[in-house]
Simulated assay, not measured.
Amino acid sequence: MLERLELEAFLTLAEELHFGRTAQRLHVTTSRISQTIRKLERRVGAQLFVRNSRSVTPTAVGERLRDDLLPANEQIALGLARAIASGRGGRTRGVVRVGWSAPWCGNLMVRAAELFRARHTDCEVEIHEIQLVDPFGGLRDGSIDVQMTEFPVEEPDIATGRLIFAEPRSLMVPAVHPLARERSVCLEDLADTVLVTLADARVPRYWMDRHFPRRTPSGRPIPQGPATGFWPEVLVHVAAGAGVSTVAARAERFYSRPGLVFVPFRDAPTVDYGLMWPTANANPLVRPFLDVVDEIVPPPDPVARHHR
């Protein structure tokens, strides 16, 4: 059986790929994280990470262990939350419903939920995945109180918080595509591809232009390919050679599979993620939940904390 610190240290390092940030998140020393990972590697009998002075990269064994453990760890957290709710016999003062889109946003929301429950023992947190084909629907129908999804957001009925993640952008291409052999790509290269997009009138055009553009910066048209309803469909279409897709570079760690290659952009804007909530009739628990997120991922300066 894995010790709790071994599990947390391994999964956090697999996400952060940095010993210092991992130690900071777990409130232990960097040497403690290093010792814990080495101990786990001895138990496994194989190296889990390749370390050098500039980077930390999971090995094939490390990636497989991460993929095996992550769903189980999330299920444990969910089971504990349900047990706590049952133990209270429904005697909760309130519930905050939290949404997320990308897995790294979901990981942060799970951590925030755990800390929020510890601080507000008579409250509960529900966590739900947001589908990009309807990015604001949950906020508008009341099923989601606050969510962490992709910017930009230019909706009068939705308030936004500060930037939480700014992820470099990559182009996800079929392994047989000519661009798969390049070290990097530029936005003008999209004119020579077929872009897999989203199919839904509920996605604002300004949002689509940021993530699934119709033209390159010079004005060349970008051929539009299959229009999908769910993110897994994008992976299937690209792997099958039907087109390419722009993604956050971190997506490679979560969605890498045979048939897909992730090529970094050298000129594309970042994929930005932040928190958002309804401007009217907001759940009063949203504000303390935002404070918890600020504690986990501190703003870059004191002014940013109050820019809400």
Score class of each variant (00 low, 15 high):
residue 112 A to M: 14
residue 125 V to T: 10
residue 84 I to F: 10
residue 49 F to C: 09
residue 59 T to A: 02
residue 89 G to W: 02
residue 137 G to T: 15
residue 135 P to G: 04
residue 96 V to C: 01
residue 89 G to F: 07
residue 62 G to D: 02
residue 98 V to L: 05
residue 84 I to M: 04
residue 85 A to G: 10
residue 56 V to Q: 04
residue 62 G to W: 01
residue 115 L to R: 14
residue 64 R to F: 00
residue 51 R to E: 10
residue 83 A to Y: 08
residue 96 V to K: 01
residue 79 G to S: 08
residue 39 K to S: 15
residue 41 E to T: 00
residue 80 L to F: 11
residue 66 R to V: 03
residue 119 R to E: 15
residue 114 E to Y: 04
residue 37 I to W: 00
residue 57 T to L: 11
residue 69 L to C: 06
residue 120 H to V: 03
residue 37 I to K: 00
residue 66 R to D: 02
residue 81 A to L: 07
residue 103 P to Q: 09
residue 82 R to D: 09
residue 118 A to L: 13
residue 68 D to Q: 11
residue 51 R to M: 15
residue 118 A to K: 14
residue 71 P to F: 02
residue 93 R to L: 10
residue 124 E to V: 09
residue 63 E to A: 05
residue 85 A to H: 05
residue 120 H to F: 14
residue 127 I to G: 03
residue 134 D to A: 07
residue 79 G to K: 09
residue 45 G to K: 09
residue 112 A to G: 06
residue 45 G to W: 03
residue 95 V to E: 07
residue 107 N to V: 13
residue 89 G to S: 06
residue 131 Q to P: 09
residue 133 V to I: 07
residue 106 G to Q: 06
residue 46 A to S: 13
residue 86 S to G: 14
residue 137 G to K: 11
residue 117 R to W: 13
residue 81 A to S: 10
residue 75 Q to Y: 14
residue 62 G to P: 02
residue 114 E to M: 11
residue 58 P to M: 02
residue 67 D to R: 02
residue 98 V to N: 04
residue 59 T to V: 01
residue 132 L to C: 07
residue 113 A to V: 06
residue 58 P to N: 01
residue 109 M to Y: 01
residue 136 F to L: 14
residue 130 I to S: 04
residue 129 E to M: 08
residue 72 A to W: 03
residue 60 A to R: 11
residue 136 F to H: 08
residue 71 P to I: 00
residue 38 R to K: 13
residue 82 R to E: 14
residue 46 A to C: 05
residue 81 A to M: 10
residue 94 G to L: 06
residue 91 R to K: 12
residue 88 R to F: 13
residue 132 L to T: 06
residue 92 T to H: 15
residue 136 F to M: 12
residue 57 T to K: 11
residue 95 V to T: 14
residue 111 R to Y: 03
residue 91 R to W: 10
residue 39 K to A: 07
residue 62 G to E: 01
residue 79 G to E: 11
residue 86 S to W: 03
residue 110 V to N: 08
residue 120 H to E: 10
residue 117 R to D: 09
residue 61 V to D: 00
residue 80 L to W: 09
